[in-house]
Design a protein around this nucleic acid. Structure first.
Lengths: 337, 337
DNA sequence: CTGGTTTAGTAAAGCGGTTTCATAACCTGA
DNA sequence: TCAGGTTATGAAACCGCTTTACTAAACCAG
């Protein structure tokens, strides 16, 4: 591999000159510039990024920490981040934490050690303060999707409350009153916000929630399946279910399928997130769509603001949309109160 | 950030000693070791990875080039690679090419610029030789999933031919004879192999393929939708469709849904790949499962072999499985020849 | 007591860039 | 003609770590 030295030698100038020329810090006479260009071409020289980084302290790389890149939601965000970063000359290190506290911290540390310029952080486990601590120590981190309470960093969330209220109202508008709620793990900011949205819409409509109609736990489909089975065994089972994530809806579908319950005739179902597979289910899933592409792009832009010394807003909220497909219908007559 | 210099100063030794101690190149008297340890702890010192890399030429990082990590198939492989790499102290740099020739080469080049020790490469566009060239020049690349003809690198593929024959025989065993085939873009190795598997199984059963029953094109669902519509418009439409990827099956489902055709009663459908969403579709999709987890892990292991000077096999084939769900049934009587 | 072998450690030269500080050569206008 | 300002370029320090080559001191057998 040719170095800047080789180029300098071949062009008959000093490495300094080559470096400055390449970094546009200097205007060279045409003749010199040409000699350097020729040498670069002849030697197929390309700067050693590592050396550049070490020397400048700038890496033009950022880290993206996600719970699990295998999940479509995070994969799509990652993809958008990468694209946006690429557009600005940055590369992205992606790291999955598998929702494991230790891995999360380790991932973070590793990325910090690798001297990336900044970090885009997504977590989905409640923090005990350690994470908030690490984040607050630096000012090159943006928190996305889920809050890390107490961390001083720009945050980027979607309209969880409004979105969930929208979903709930959609069911109410179809005539449902016995509406059950599948939440995620308690202690998470977004879980709380979404629940509030649900409660808000129910209260607006003057509906009181029967006991057992709200279930919290993990985001695992298996858990949602069990929870749904429980819902179906109630004396007065719901006529509609709000799932606060696609994965939860997946679990619900599994349970409904087990019991031979048809969506939307016997049960309406609406989800939050709207990953790609929702459109493929039969019937296609009505859902609140998170603007994943936008989350990724905006997240990177916020980080870039930080890196380039601009002051990004402390909190950014992105709007969500109701995507009407076919998993929501009117309740059966006999089920109406 | 504390440097090795600071540590040395505080411990009253030279940087050399600290470096060697940290890298286990020297056995130090307990007293000295303790002083160094104390200094490290006090200063919260952590080696600058960039400097280490520059100095040693080793980065303990690998690159993973995929067409699009947003796609579940690649996301799952990426996830497995990351996990396996992590286990061996390597970090993974993921890069999506979006199936774009230029981005593919750029990605490769960027990674090659000394930033990573090796590369795991997945492509899904036919190569014109440029890729093969770049790969052959180095001996730290493993090619996965799809071939890059002419490149001298270890390859890791699944049993495309056998798998597709398996899928086809499964339909034949159910009584189908009018079986159509949705292939991917021609010119790809795996596309060719899978087609051969299909042909093989059909020939075994003595079935001759009506014209128009094999369609090639892109992997895009939209394309498959159109192709399926075309199939349905044939004078003698098929009673079953083999899709050589999940995405193609997705497109087929969209078309069938448009026409009110019910799977598997009116049409059987079987796919290759078996991404997670296949189980969620109604009816759940019968498919040939690629061992994604294994592909990722084995891929990394092959690369590690290469990096550590062992000689990995030139070609590794991983087995595929038939996952029976509910998208395959017997053809209707009237449709039988 | 001598010369060889450990032991414990260091100075300095990289790795491949960037950047600060200089300098030499060449105007330019008074 | 010369002070003063450009313009074109370079030497050397530095980023933080590793590694080679070397030394000073202690040890040890003969």
């Amino acid at each position: 591999m040719a170095t800047i030295h080789d180029v300098a030698l071949q062009a008959g100038v000093s490495p300094t000159t080559v470096s400055r020329y390449l970094n546009r810090r200097i205007e060279l006479p045409a003749a010199t510039a040409e000699r350097i260009d020729a040498a670069i071409a002849a030697l197929d020289y390309r700067p050693n990024v590592l050396a550049q980084r070490l020397s400048t302290g700038k890496s033009f790389a950022i880290g993206l920490v996600a719970p699990e890149i295998r999940e479509p939601f995070f994969a799509e965000i990652a993809s958008a981040v990468e694209d946006e970063a690429d557009r600005h000359g940055y590369t992205v290190f992606i790291s999955s934490t598998r929702s494991d506290r230790a891995r999360e911290l380790a991932s973070l540390q590793r990325l910090v050690d690798r001297q990336v310029d900044g970090l885009l952080l997504m977590t989905n486990i409640p923090d005990d303060g350690a994470l908030a601590d690490m984040i607050s120590r630096r000012r090159n981190v943006v928190v996305m999707d889920e809050d890390v309470p107490g961390a001083s960093a720009p945050r980027l969330f979607v309209e969880n409350r409004e979105g969930m209220a929208l979903a709930t109202r959609h069911l109410i508008d179809h005539g449902h009153r016995r509406i059950a709620y599948l939440g995620g793990p308690e202690g998470l900011f977004s879980v709380t916000e979404r629940r509030e949205g649900f409660r808000l819409a129910m209260a607006e409509a003057g509906i009181t929630l029967p006991p057992g109609y709200m279930v919290f736990g993990s985001f695992a489909p298996a858990h949602a399946r069990l929870a749904t089975l429980g819902l179906l065994d109630l004396a007065e089972p719901p006529t509609a279910i709000v799932a606060s994530s696609d994965y939860l809806a997946m679990g619900a579908i599994l349970a409904l399928r087990d019991r031979g319950i048809v969506v939307p005739e016997d049960m309406s179902l609406i989800a939050f997130d709207d990953a790609a597979f929702g459109a493929l289910i039969t019937p296609p899933l009505t859902a609140i769509r998170q603007p994943v592409e936008l989350i990724g792009r905006r997240g990177f832009q916020l980080l870039l603001d930080l890196l380039e010394g601009r002051e990004p807003p402390a909190l950014t909220r992105l709007p969500v949309d109701l995507i009407r497909r076919q998993s929501v219908g009117a309740p059966r007559r006999k089920d109406l109160k």
